[in-house]
Design a protein around this nucleic acid. Structure first.
Length: 294
DNA sequence: AAGAACTCCTGTTGGC
DNA sequence: TGCCAACAGGAGTTCT
């Protein structure tokens, strides 16, 4: 569920509570999430100090002293809440659920030495955590095949062209493929394609020249991806099912959706009379305007 | 070997 | 109101 902007929002929210802190203990309430949790997970974390928290694609990376990295992926329903040392509860991100709803699926709690607790709940358990030595990150299966970082300096029209060149798959599927670009999900692919006025059905290779150079469409798409993600992060990400409970810590970008979830509504384009259409591509909903996205 | 379909799991929603 | 199918922000595995 969380895509890059939501993961980034969660990371920023956790940052002040976790960086520089030492883990006093870990409650692990089940052996696995999507995958088995690391062997001796709690023991290996206990006593470690969190030196930094970074993000790669949709992964949050907590860099620990002694050289390991705690890798966290939220899957579809992963969410963190923080019990502050002073007893207040904070939700650093966009996935707050009111009341006690989340407690049933609370699988992991990190207790910090300063008294704070970082709680991880995940109803569907598509999230996962791993412990990877810093030196093995680049070669680790989770990261080895990961594609371009869309907000990185090296995400250029040429770089985008190079990962789309020759791809016979529709643009929608290509942009969801984390081996090409890492961090986009269903919402932001739809929104970026709309912003670039490109059809999700168009074959990816058709925005790359025969010799692998970006076409004007590819340049537009590159810009659109960066813009949509940047705007979404600035808005604190998107909160869908829980947006009605907005309390200031929830994302606001859902109010800026142009096409996502807007089937049957008029295209928001200034001089477009089109209607937003929904179709299914590789089992996922795609929303787009057939009139102005070509 | 690329690309699409299936799969994991639980909760919510919309249509009858 | 109740029931149930469809669907949900992801992505690894298995098929074709």
């Amino acid at each position: 569920m969380p895509e890059l902007p939501e993961v980034e929002t969660v990371r920023l929210g956790l940052l002040p509570f976790m960086v520089g802190k030492t883990i006093e203990g870990v409650e692990q309430r089940r052996a696995d999430l999507r995958f088995p949790l690391p062997k001796d997970f709690a023991a290996r974390l206990t006593g470690r100090r969190i030196e930094a928290m970074d993000r790669r694609a949709k992964y949050i990376l907590a860099r620990l002293d002694e050289g390991e990295v705690l890798v966290m992926h939220l899957g579809m329903t992963g969410r963190f809440t923080v019990d502050e040392a002073n007893g207040a509860a904070v939700t650093p991100g966009v996935f707050a659920h009111p009341g006690t709803e989340g407690a049933r699926h609370e699988h992991i709690v990190f207790h910090l030495k300063d008294g704070a607790a970082i709680r991880y709940a995940d109803a569907r358990r598509f999230g996962y955590m791993a412990l990877v030595p810093e030196s093995e990150m680049a070669e680790h299966p989770l990261f080895k095949g990961l594609g371009l970082e869309p907000l990185g300096d090296d995400f250029t029209p040429q770089a985008l062209a190079s990962v789309l060149a020759g791809a016979k798959t529709p643009l929608k599927a290509a942009l969801l493929d984390q081996r090409r670009i890492a961090g986009l999900g269903n919402i932001y692919v739809c929104e970026a394609l709309y912003a670039a006025r490109l059809s999700p059905v168009r074959l990816a290779r058709t925005i790359v020249t025969k010799d692998g150079r970006p076409t004007e469409r590819c340049v537009r798409l590159c810009e659109a991806i960066k813009q949509v993600l940047t705007d979404a992060i600035a808005a604190g990400g998107s909160s869908l099912r829980d947006y009605a409970h907005a309390d200031g810590s929830l994302g606001r970008f859902q109010y800026s959706f142009k096409v996502y979830g807007r089937e049957g509504k008029p295209c928001p384009g200034d001089d477009c009379q089109g209607v937003v259409k929904r179709l299914v591509q590789s089992g996922r909903s795609t929303f787009y305007c057939p009139s102005c996205q070509r």
